[in-house]
Design a binder for these strands. Structure first.
Lengths: 302, 302
DNA sequence: TCAAGTATTTGTCTAGGACAAAATGGATAG
DNA sequence: CTATCCATTTTGTCCTAGACAAATACTTGA
């Protein structure tokens, strides 16, 4: 039959087995059948509802209020809007790219973004177009307008575009100072990292080295030593719990030698409550750009 | 203190909480202290040993024999070689790229691979150089010669190189038939996917669309419908358990319409015991190349 | 209207038992 | 000497049900 074991549901929805079991105990949903061995066997429709629930709880809804509602009610709720989201204001509105993505127009999206990149230049494109667009894509996903696969497709198209342009820039390792880009295990979103890498590479003062996503902390430390890095840069997406961010940053800070700076950015980084010694928080890419300009100015001045 | 909670150990080592607890119960290792709340608090050194244990069990060692050994003993064991590995024979030996990677020589590796790519051509490079090299890198990791971060670095360098070359090829969507590339949730290795994508794109018969790693199955189905895909191609790395592969392939096959072919490849795909109806297994890239040549030949012949 | 204190919610952790699938070892047949 | 089959052990995952700390919501007082 098409019944799914709990491990698959965990992977596909991102909800931990513990959470699935405790929701069942507390709210009576989902209430999967049991297979011959007494193990939970979820139906495919429950999987859909659980994905919606994940989105809504991430957006600030409380499980007690929504776990158990029908799929239609959940979809209405998702579409009805940002719940407790901070109402970002400046009408990012219907970006043309978002429309293309909704229609799965792969090549159209690629060409559209390439054109905007050509017009705005790499830095302008990243800061003024891509950063808000990435947020808009995340919100469209939360709203249910696009699926995970479309988000992946977006990531793929953007990655290719930026990589192709990065390739043409000089490696930029005159000073010898290097910035190491990575995310910690548990964080899979790589776009923020890539955008930051673009800015740093264009600024030219540093050599940018990307280790990609989910790098264990001790490996990060080893890598920073091997490359004589001056800076380690981490990215945290909105999906990160504040506990995850806080714990990760503190632990890594303790592991890294004090001579190495730790930069963090992304929407998840903003959730860091108290400042941590030796950690610089960039709440948006503009701040990073300003900081890089400052470094460049002082370098050319001296 | 620098004591780590079980959730962090799970993320950093890839060993599930259940496994960590049951090892402690059965073998007495690791035996973490407890914090004020009675929760396990692991030491950093245990984390190192656990990572070694993960490598060794993946390589075929049995937990009962090795859990509890000292870190030195584990390292000796890892270095001493392939345990039950199938002794691949044709002396992949010390590839120059591997040496560069061991020395963290990022730019050297990039230039070296670019040179080999230029000499062998894209297809030759992928089939004859990159595929064995990728395996060699995996083995070097299992042996402990390189770390996760270096493996990530390798992935990063190769990805950039291949992407840069893919960009220059025609999109190739004359027939309209498209191949969708992805991995299932739980599989993070994207290199196999990218290599296959290279071959398909060069062959030119299909439009290649990559959704990247960890795409939920239902999203894959939606994407294949939206793109009118004829083929969905999945990659499974060696690290995949055979249960994961088998379950994943069967479930997805059931979800996809019968008109869509399902291709699977990678070292994990070979662990599939029985053939599944409507699923084509490519046990190496050479086979894929042969199949693509055949399609091309029959297309130009008719 | 805002700050401080109290109550509820929520995800994660714990323990120890159970079981099916996989791996191993041994016996038997070709 | 090698292959096939069966019994035994190993091993990862799943189970229940209780506990608790951190985060969130609510209430009270200035």
């Amino acid at each position: 039959m098409d019944r799914l074991p709990i491990a698959v549901v965990e992977r596909e929805t991102g909800l931990s087995k513990d959470t699935l079991r405790v929701w069942e105990r507390r709210y009576g949903f989902p209430s999967p059948e049991r297979d011959a061995a007494g193990d939970r066997a979820y139906r495919a429709e429950d999987l859909h509802a659980l994905r919606l629930l994940r989105r809504l709880t991430d957006a600030g809804h409380r499980p007690a209020k929504i776990v158990g509602l029908s799929a239609e009610q959940l979809e209405t709720l998702a579409r009805s809007g940002q719940a407790s989201a901070p109402a970002d204001g400046p009408a990012v509105a219907a970006d043309a790219a978002l429309i293309l993505l909704q229609h799965w127009d792969f090549t159209g999206l690629r060409d559209h973004l390439a054109q905007r990149l050509a017009q705005a230049g790499l830095v302008g494109f990243v800061c003024d177009h891509l950063a808000p667009l990435t947020i808009a894509v995340g919100e469209a996903w939360a709203r249910g307008d696009i699926g995970v696969a479309q988000e992946h497709l977006f990531t793929e198209v953007v990655t290719r575009l930026l990589r192709a342009h990065l390739q043409q820039l000089p490696g930029g390792r005159r000073g010898g100072a290097a910035v190491l880009f990575a995310t910690l295990p548990g964080e899979q979103h790589a776009l923020g990292l890539l955008m930051a890498e673009c800015l740093v590479t264009v600024a030219g003062g540093y050599a940018a080295i990307s280790l990609g996503t989910e790098v264990p902390m001790q490996e990060l430390v080893k890598a920073s030593e091997a490359h004589c890095c001056k800076i380690v840069a981490l990215s945290f997406s909105q999906a990160c719990s504040s506990a995850f961010v806080s714990e990760g940053v503190r632990t890594l800070r303790a592991l890294l030698p004090p001579t190495v700076a730790l930069w963090i950015g992304g929407r998840g980084a903003a959730t860091l409550k108290r400042a941590v010694d030796g950690v610089t928080v960039f709440s948006d890419l503009g701040q990073l750009q300003v900081a890089l300009d400052a470094v460049n100015a002082s370098a050319s001045g001296s």
